[in-house]
Design a protein around this nucleic acid. Structure first.
Lengths: 223, 223
DNA sequence: CATTCTCGTTCTGTCAGATGAAACGCAACA
DNA sequence: TGTTGCGTTTCATCTGACAGAACGAGAATG
């Protein structure tokens, strides 16, 4: 591997990344299938992560995320834009548009939803906190790639304020708008996003929502 | 190292474990000092963890916990005793005793506070969620060690129901009581704990609180 | 009940990976 | 201007990590 990385650490991270809300607990065989790693490799790597509390095993030997992750998450949350700070903007957006409002951050080659206010409509793009999606799709993916320094050559989805609009990327029937949120130091913090059913959240509705989205995102910057 | 572990993974975990609420962000030099690892080693290990989003760097090159930790923490929380489930018991305990009520789990060789309801008294053992303490001290440390299968030879701190009482261990002026919480399958989930000023939360006050603590802990089991 | 299959664990030869020392450029400081 | 410390890169060395094989145990199957 490249000399500026460590292969066994990336194997360990791939084990951690294998856990999901659908698979919060896995046996050794399931982890082997999910990661492609050999069982003896997984045992070695997870033994080390258990010592530090990042992974745990139950009495049947099944693996799950350990409490050290929780401890670090509280540090992450405290060091990041706090939920209390973002929540009012999400509620305003959800109420004003009738669609789902969410806040994404970049995690490696993915985007992760930190906070969300789901649309009151029963037919909606339902988003859960912790959900991870591709960085290559969706308006918030475009925003996170553009403003974290990634080279891009196609800016046609962006307006002059850096707000992106997309249709049918994350899901064929979903459209979304997203705008960057910066820290006071000018660094990208995340992407404030509204997503909805494309037939309802059409071009006109998105155009109407953009000024509010940009104003609320700017209001989050002053922290 | 032992053949059932992986040294570079443990180095990586030690980097993650170096972050705290006091040091949520660190430079390369600070991380080197905190972990004892060489700077070039830290760069390699953190490059790999960044790819998976577990660590991030700001524009000045300082390191902090990344959003993948947050995603996993939500999985951990969902897979664990939910805050909503534990919160009522913590409030009842804090109100009934006037002291701080908390819920600890074991993470490797430490205990981590998942949830807490601080005492309304201004003079109190203030606990923050995510706080980690030694497993070798405090009533909840005793409980977590005993019921996670660790060999112990001194049970003098425990009553017949497995509830531990301690004075002056975590802090010379603090006393605490703690009792195990089990899953429906009989596995240890965590330790329900009350901690307070030793002069106020004396032997008589602790004795009065134990039946309520045990009843509430038992109530958490049925899930 | 006997046989087969799968899982989890342990061991080990092989080789590729990981380490840290040295060197460098740059910025901060006196 | 010179010194110090930080962050980054390179590379020789040696040790660590891998995965395949083997094994025991329990579950599944006939």
């Amino acid at each position: 591997m490249a000399t500026n990385r460590t292969e066994s650490v990336e194997r360990a991270m791939s084990i951690l990344s294998a856990f999901s809300t659908q698979k919060p607990i896995m046996s050794l065989a399931e982890l082997a299938e999910e990661t492609g790693l050999h069982k003896s490799t997984i045992l070695r790597l997870t033994n080390s992560m258990r010592i530090y509390g990042f992974i745990q095993r139950d009495e049947d030997g099944r693996f799950s995320v350990g409490p050290s992750v929780w401890r670090l998450a509280l540090i992450f949350r405290r060091d990041f834009t706090k939920r209390e700070h973002v929540a009012p903007a999400l509620r305003i957006l959800a109420e004003a548009t009738g669609e789902t409002a969410s806040f994404y951050v970049r995690a490696g080659n993915e985007r992760v939803c930190l906070y969300r206010e789901n649309s009151p409509n029963l037919l909606r793009f339902h988003v859960e906190e912790g959900m991870r999606l591709r960085l290559s799709t969706g308006a918030s993916g475009l925003v996170l790639r553009r403003y974290s320094g990634e080279d891009m050559d196609d800016f046609s989805s962006f307006n002059e304020n850096g707000t992106a609009s997309s249709v049918g990327q994350t899901n064929p029937n979903i459209s979304s708008i997203s705008t960057p949120v910066f820290s006071a130091a000018g660094e990208l913090v995340g992407a404030l996003t509204v997503s909805g059913l494309a037939t309802r959240f059409d071009e006109e509705a998105r155009a109407r929502a953009i000024p509010l989205l940009e104003r609320l995102a700017h209001g989050l910057t002053t922290t």
